[in-house]
């Protein structure tokens, strides 16, 4: 019932938004989709990826390249998550042997390598970018609905997996690999699977992104974007299904507000970029200090007062 209501409200939002906010909404839904995957990886499997934008880029370029070479856009969109997941499996097999900070830095390195490869690859448009990607749907409203579908899919899959046999196995392995293995959990294989699943979510969002913008360049996928996903997941609340969506929403709205503020007359030219960089730092520090478990768990505790423990 609550879910139906939430769905109805979400579907009613896009037509009510003015044109310029519609673009923000599409960006929000796509970013939230990637963040759902990051949150699954961090909150439930205990793995940190600082290179999730790489899979977003892989999905986007896969869809974009296919479409540019004449494949139907829908085919590109369907293959985007598959290509991203395959890339994650190939990279993850060696990377997931690494633990904690090592894995985070390794994924960051993977993204940097990917960006420099893309920038020098003529077949992908090089540093100038891949242009002339056909449209998937007619107008921005159509993209808003496509983005909602993609986000809903990611949330449902994430919710289903968490409460399932493999999901419990992952959560168990996050506390004790030894005890999980003793219960019959192939820890490495499960971690690789969830890494691929999170990459597939990023790839799917990337596919929509490619058709929405119609133009891709390595500059669209900076390292800051990967960090953004992590900040959103942490601010929203790791270990919750709604957390990444709330986190993405709050941060995107904040960045937009600061951007508006920064472009007011009388503001120096560097104001927008300084303000938007600063927001990550301030939000993350505030969150870690005052809401270490994130927004969603904090809000829940307000509603259900003082459970012991």
């Amino acid at each position: 019932m609550r879910l139906l209501l939430l769905g109805a409200v979400t579907l009613a939002i896009p037509p009510l938004l003015p044109e310029r906010h519609l673009a923000t909404f599409v960006l929000f839904a796509l970013t939230a989709t990637v963040t759902v995957g990051v949150s699954l990886l961090m909150g439930y499997a205990g793995q940190v990826s600082l290179g999730q934008a790489a899979f977003y880029a892989i999905g986007a370029y896969a869809a974009g390249l296919l479409a540019v070479h004449g494949a139907p856009p829908v085919l590109g969109l369907l293959l985007a998550p598959v290509v991203a997941a395959v890339a994650a499996v190939l990279l993850g097999a060696p990377l997931l042997r690494l633990r904690g900070h090592h894995l985070a830095f390794a994924t960051l390195a993977v993204q940097l390598i990917l960006l420099s490869v893309l920038a020098s690859a003529d077949w992908a448009g090089g540093a100038i970018g891949l242009q002339g990607i056909p449209r998937l749907v007619g107008d921005d409203l159509g993209y808003a609905y496509a983005a909602i579908v993609v986000l809903t899919l990611a949330v449902l899959v994430s919710r289903n997996v968490i409460a399932s046999r493999p999901g419990r196995a992952l959560r168990a392995a996050a506390t004790s690999e030894i005890a999980a293995a003793a219960s019959g959990v192939p820890v490495g294989r499960h971690r690789l699977a969830v890494f691929a699943l999170s990459a597939a979510m990023a790839g799917l969002a990337g596919g929509v992104y490619a058709f929405y913008l119609g133009y891709l360049s390595p500059g669209s996928f900076p390292v800051l974007l990967s960090i953004e996903f992590v900040v959103m997941a942490v601010v929203g609340g790791l270990g919750t299904v709604a957390g990444p969506v709330v986190g993405a929403g709050v941060i995107i709205v904040l960045v937009q507000l600061l951007n508006t503020l920064g472009t007011q007359p009388g503001m120096p030219g560097y104001a927008p970029s300084v303000l938007s960089y600063a927001v990550y730092a301030i939000v993350l520090i505030t969150c870690v200090l005052y809401l270490p478990r994130g927004l969603v768990p904090a809000l829940r505790r307000l509603r259900i007062p003082s459970r012991a423990g």
Partner: peptide
Amino acid sequence: SGFLAAAL
């Protein structure tokens, strides 16, 4: 039952 069965 694995990830795919759980997701769907």
